[in-house]
């Protein structure tokens, strides 16, 4: 229990200590996860909407694939990305391995099924009558899709929130493809693993508290958006 209370107070201390190394880690965590979320949202929401609105025959199969993707173990994603970006792999020329770019790629792959799968579910939940109605009012195809997405926005934002939670707390993939390099690819989760490994339990707890606080703030911000729109 000692570690827990000490960790909690250490977290508060750390936040106000203005330790540049800590802020670097926090900033990198947010940058990697933020960019990965942005990309997976930009691809995942349209893909999810398209799947939810279309009536192609393979939809059942694709849905199953997407839902399975939500359960992808991050380490497996990490290993896949590692092998792709390795100098002996097909994308080795990019030189992305052990850089934040590799971590972003891994997180996009983890977040994409969550965003697109949950968006699809949300879009499917919209009353079909809405589409008929806007179409009868002379809406174009794009306007029609937009109207449906707007109606499903609660579910869509929930999808983005779920993806955010999934990737900001993820450690297996970023550890593998980022390498946990100090000052370069060390994020909150890999720093927690490092401190656990070396027995610095209260520091690990402190970083965990900071991670939770960040996730909480981000979620509050997104939920406010949800409430206002």
């Amino acid at each position: 229990m000692d570690e827990l209370t000490r960790g909690f107070f250490q977290a508060i201390q750390l936040i106000f200590s203005a330790d540049p190394a800590l802020y670097e880690i926090i900033f990198l965590s947010l940058r990697v996860t933020g960019l990965a979320l942005l990309v997976s949202t930009a691809i995942g929401v349209p893909v999810g909407a398209a799947l939810g609105l279309s009536n192609i025959r393979a939809r059942g199969f694709i849905t199953a694939l997407l839902y399975t993707g939500m359960g992808l173990p991050p380490v497996v994603v990490g290993l896949f990305v590692y092998l792709m970006l390795s100098r002996s792999g097909p994308f080795g020329v990019f030189g992305w391995l052990f850089t934040p770019s590799a971590m972003i790629v891994a997180q996009i792959i983890i977040a994409f099924p969550l965003v697109s799968g949950l968006t699809m579910a949300a879009v499917q939940g919209v009353d079909p009558a809405l589409r008929l109605q806007v179409r009868s009012l002379g809406a174009t195809r794009a306007q029609e899709v937009w109207a449906v997405l707007r109606e499903a926005r609660l579910g869509v934002i929930a999808a983005i929130v779920a993806a955010f939670g999934g990737i900001i707390s993820e450690v297996g993939a970023v550890m593998l493809v980022g390498g946990n390099i100090e000052g370069k690819t060390r994020v909150l989760t890999t720093a927690i693993v490092l401190n656990t490994r070396t027995g610095e339990f209260s520091l690990a707890i402190a970083l965990g508290v900071i991670l939770l606080a960040l996730a909480f703030l981000a979620n509050v911000a997104m939920l406010r958006l949800q409430g206002k729109s």
Binding site: I43, V81, M84, S101, I104, I108, I109, F112
Partner: peptide, 9 residues
């Protein structure tokens, strides 16, 4: 930023 090339779309 990484182009989503390796993303299995």
């Amino acid at each position: 930023a990484p182009a989503p090339a390796p993303t299995p779309v």
